[in-house]
Design a protein around this nucleic acid. Sequence first.
DNA 1: TTTTAACCTGACCAAACGGTCAAGATAAAT
DNA 2: ATTTATCTTGACCGTTTGGTCAGGTTAAAA
Lengths: 225, 225
Amino acid sequence: MTSVKSGSKQDNQFGAKPAANGAHKAAIRQENEEQILAAAERVFADYGFKGATTARIAEIAKVPKANVHYYFSTKEALYRRIMEDVCDHWLEAAMTFDNSADPAVILRGYIEAKMDLSRARPYGSRLWAHEIIRGAKFSSDYISTTVKDWLDTRVGVIRGWIAEGKMDDIEPYSLMYMIFATTQHYADFGRQIEIFNDNQPLSEQQFAEAKENVVRIILKGVGLN
Amino acid sequence: MTSVKSGSKQDNQFGAKPAANGAHKAAIRQENEEQILAAAERVFADYGFKGATTARIAEIAKVPKANVHYYFSTKEALYRRIMEDVCDHWLEAAMTFDNSADPAVILRGYIEAKMDLSRARPYGSRLWAHEIIRGAKFSSDYISTTVKDWLDTRVGVIRGWIAEGKMDDIEPYSLMYMIFATTQHYADFGRQIEIFNDNQPLSEQQFAEAKENVVRIILKGVGLN
DNA sequence: TTTTAACCTGACCAAACGGTCAAGATAAAT
DNA sequence: ATTTATCTTGACCGTTTGGTCAGGTTAAAA
């Protein structure tokens, strides 16, 4: 939680020696943008686009509200920027679903990557949930191009596995929706799971076990053992 | 879409003969409350509690905003009333998880009931999703008592099945979360599924197939065939 | 040292917000 | 026919909202 307001060159985030050539200014900008983006991700994740307020974002980011608008012209621009980031992370996890290995290995890897993403970035997952629930007003293009292309490719791969008799004849879309739903549930409905777990967030061990259970049920469920 | 504003006894929603003893006034109240509740469920489901506006609810319900406040004193009272209704419907589906039959039959019945609820009342499911994502501020009591009691009982039942060797040794909570997630996904992420489905909502047949696929994967996944 | 460009922010604004109210309309009870 | 209780609604109120701006501070360039 280093402050950027102190002004002294001695206590900026690079230590006593500020780098040459405007690096300090650039660092200030980066620091503030990150602070605002992190705060906005939380607030948008909690309340959705309409329910979120720039005042609350500023409060959590610990900057004056006017400063939020200095770095991001409008609430919508800020929202779009965060959506891009969320999509990038989703794509990263998506890439673990390659086509180079055994079906069980691939599916296991993808499920584990999505579970880990849920745990590492719950706010991103919740923000995505808000976005879809509201009707995907900002992201329907992204879904109907990038995501759909990705999904249809994987569906083709799964159909190949089925044709080769490597797994049961399960409609691949149903399977993929199930993986989406289950893995994201641990982020989106984390509060509910916490309440069921005697008001304690899942421990690392509990989460690891949950991950293994999800993998086991799905792999066995489609005939991949 | 019968209007209640026409004033003539001849065209109220009961036809030419209004029932005796203040039935017309009662009917007006019921009609308006229903209209407002239906509109509010949609708006809250789209935007969550904070993001929803009473003006939008009034617009969809086709009544002046002041009339919304005549029937429901505050936005929060209206929200709570709808949450109660959503919970009631959830409990109804929950009751299909009895303890009187074969494990496979029970699980199948419960999954199908939850899938059907998702399809019949998507707004309720989405509203619930908002409520949990935001931290269950209004419903944590309900979850930590009614829902948790119900869940723990079913977990006990499942542990019994496992002890009797009727199914695989799967952590029952993981299984139940998977069922929650998958069945609700068809409501909460319905828009996303629609986009993947060439921008068409799932047909009755597609939905029936999805339901069967979900049942198949889960039952086989836990060793119930 | 001076100038310039970037950063910072309290104060402000118009619009939208949840909620109120008085006055009128309608239907039930007397 | 008159009274009473309920329903209806445009106008309004104080607060919160997203966004602006002038005037200041700070750091890099000249």
